[in-house]
């Protein structure tokens, strides 16, 4: 399937221009959590019918909207459009606000609005309403494999012609409670920097949040970026491997074992922060690199294992990039992108 459009919202802002600048700039210290600033979620035009939506849904709406807008395909494809959203944890911040109601006021005095927004598929419902898209909509949660499973289903839907175009993406959020949970379960990087190439058994993380969306299709004429040539297995040696070693899924020593000798390596985790759906963000960066035919330097350079790191921003011939992720059960998943 081909990527016809992309949208992204993350710690440094919204849009592909912001992403390109972030890739140029590399790592900057964004604090102990890479949250999306509140002002980034203010868009009175796109969000005019989603004023009551929570930040989880707003991030997803904006990224999905931007992916469709980026394609330039607009209204004409809406009758043929499906939406698949991946999320590792769902709108947990809203769920905890709903629990506040229960604890503060009792079972009988809770907010129906908070309840309806605490459901995982609230975001995809808002996307459908905002875009006035009446096709199939689905939400998947599979922790570190959520986005990969969403891509596989998107491919299935396109192959069986359930849809001609699909907005497939991810959204995840960091709230105060999640921050606390991460602090109890994992190690925070004390200087705010994720060191993706340490391959530690107890890696350090910086929780991030955001949303990344792709408009995908089997229509080659609509290809704007590249093809997603496969999910879950490494089909060939890529020109660049982006590691999603972000400290969020435990032992990272396996990354070292799987890398072939001389493989050119990078990681976008230090830009986006740690998320179980990080692969979707890495894939946006990869598609941008393929489009621009430009390597961006790895945002961190600590390289204790002497990997062949991508260390400078430079033009180059790039045919394929793979995004590699290990989950907590040592299961790998790979998203292969190809021009």
């Amino acid at each position: 399937m081909y990527i016809a459009g992309m949208g992204i919202i993350f710690n440094r802002g919204r849009g592909l221009d912001i992403l390109e600048k972030a890739l140029e700039d590399g790592w900057v210290n964004s604090g102990s959590v890479y949250g999306v600033p509140e002002e980034v979620l203010k868009d009175k035009i796109v969000l005019k019918d989603a004023r009551r939506a929570d930040d989880f849904s707003k991030m997803a709406i904006l990224a999905a909207h931007d992916a469709l807008a980026d394609s330039g395909l607009g209204e004409k494809i809406k009758p043929k459009l499906g939406i698949i959203l991946a999320t590792a944890f769902g709108p947990h911040a809203t769920t905890f606000r709903f629990l506040d109601d229960i604890l503060n006021f009792g079972d009988a005095q809770v907010s129906p609005t908070l309840f309806s927004h605490s459901v995982h598929n609230a975001a995809v419902s808002y996307i459908a309403s905002t875009l006035q898209s009446r096709g199939p909509t689905l939400t998947i949660t599979q922790f570190a494999d959520s986005f990969q499973q969403a891509l596989i289903l998107a491919d299935s839907w396109l192959e069986e012609k359930r849809c001609e175009y699909i907005l497939v993406g991810s959204v995840d959020q960091v709230g105060k409670v999640m921050e606390y949970i991460v602090s109890q379960k994992l190690k925070f990087a004390p200087d705010g920097k994720i060191r993706s190439f340490n391959f530690s058994k107890e890696p350090e993380c910086i929780p991030g949040e955001g949303s990344a969306f792709f408009l995908v299709t089997n229509n080659q004429k609509d290809k704007k970026y590249c093809a997603i040539s496969g999910v879950t297995s490494l089909k060939e040696k890529p020109d660049l491997t982006i590691l999603d070693s972000d400290g969020f899924a435990g032992d990272e020593s396996l990354y070292r074992e799987v890398l072939g000798k001389g493989t050119l390596v990078s990681s976008c985790a230090p830009i986006f922060g740690s998320m179980l759906t990080l692969s979707s963000f890495s894939a946006v960066a990869a598609a941008l690199m393929l489009k621009k035919q430009k390597f961006y330097a790895s945002p961190v350079r600590e390289n204790p294992h002497n990997l062949n790191l991508c260390v400078e921003n430079k033009a180059g011939k790039i045919n394929s990039i793979s995004c590699l992720r290990y989950d907590c059960n040592a299961k790998s998943s790979i998203i292969n992108l190809r021009n």
Binding site: T95, F98, L99, I102, D107, A108, V110, S111, P112, F115, S116, S118
Partner: peptide, 12 residues
């Protein structure tokens, strides 16, 4: 579960 039980109640 208590959450949907309370939530559906709130939705009347």
């Amino acid at each position: 579960n208590r959450v949907p039980y309370d939530g559906f109640s709130a939705l009347s």
